[in-house]
Design a protein around this nucleic acid. Sequence first.
RNA 1: CGGGACAUAGUGUAACGGCUAACAUGCUCGCUUUGGGAGCGAGUGAUUCCCGGUUCGAAUCCGGGUGUCCCGACCA
Length: 434
Amino acid sequence: MSHGFSLSQMCKTGIIENMRQSQLFTKTRKEAPSDEQSTNAKLLIQGGFVHKEMAGVYTFLPLGLIVLEKIKNIIREELNVVGGQEIVMTALQQKDVWEKTGRWDDEVVDDWFKTSLKNDTELGLAFTHEEPLTHTMKNFISSYKDLPVYAYQFQTKFRNELRAKSGIMRGKEFLMKDLYDFSKDKEEHDAFYEKMKGVYMKIFKRVGLGEQTYLTMSSGGSFSKYSFEFQTITDAGEDVILYDAEKKIAINKSDFSDELLEDFDLKKEELNLEEAKSVEVGDIYTLGEKYSSALGLVYKDAEGNDRAVYMGSYGIGVPRLMGTIVEVFNDAHGIVWPEEVAPFAVHLLDLESGGKADELYQMLVDEGVEVLFDDRDARAGEKFADADLIGIPLRVVVSKKSLGQRGVEVKKRNEEKSEMMSIEDFMEDVKSEK
RNA sequence: CGGGACAUAGUGUAACGGCUAACAUGCUCGCUUUGGGAGCGAGUGAUUCCCGGUUCGAAUCCGGGUGUCCCGACCA
């Protein structure tokens, strides 16, 4: 019998793997904040996952950070599979590097946050990292033998958005995973680009959004006629896509045209397109030689000729992805986290169990199960309500009532029914899931 | 950046230009209670966003700021 969690899949964060809820400094709120409209912000604040500092700027509290780290770990694992090497670049940016590509100008990039050193030297707070990384790579790439290179980071981006909105889905300061590919030529880049489509879908599948996320055709970036983005269907979205659920393809409505269909060899008659609001959870761009030639990132090919490195960039807004997950998975009582990104695998509730719950908690910890133990001196109703709000996939109750029957009551967050079973059987299941 | 709405204890709300700014919740203490945010009692908690103006008197009216949310434009 399966209880819906898989220890083998659990991705340890190294932050908090188990915890007594009485020690958790955050508290849930009875009411949603009045200054938030979006579901993700309401639920995440109510559950104590995040705290709003200002519009579009959110602090991640323990529960929220665990989720964020889980998402990061999933991304990390999948990127490492295809040869990604993780780095962290700086948020402070020097002007001259950006001037070489023309992107320092406020007329060109209108959401810069700029600041300065004591001596009045102008600095920027990075809104992306093509320029600095391309510049950095000049130190390490000089031969075709050095290529390709796939470097990525999780880094805070600063964007002076005119309007932050949708809770954690569009902030002025947010964590972004950005990967850059440095390839010998278009062919090598294209092969990686194709591979990344699969990598991204795998990531979105693992965070629980596989079903509602579509590889979506849209108008291209600087170096290709078209580019691809990943759109997750939800009413909280700002985009509109036309999608074929059978064929699992989608087109951004704003870029839809007969020409596009033709270019992708699609026949309108053969498509069963539906329209839906969606969120852009990721995008992948071909950059070509734009940045490498502007910044002089060249390598010697086998014939000894200088050639510009061919590049691409691949982004995922991590908080946006987290917010999207909340938007897609919630009900009237709270969040319903998908297994792989849930802050804990088990929410253990002690309802006057006379110490039995403590024993079970220790057993679970010993087995390496990620468990939040509600050992608070609170009433049943409050504990149930909080468990629903926080949304951990499996709820296990140890109470006088459960002990009077078989032992523990086990219930999945996304199901109505619960099941009584003995502690021994439950632990047996836990071990077999490992 | 264009348009709209709103701003009152930690949180959610109420209050006609007029009494010590009210209620709920939270928090503290006591008693009671223990399977869906229980009950009783006693406490705690506010420069009514800021600055200025009108008025005998402003949470309330006026002006200007600032902040938050929403629509549009732009973006992960």
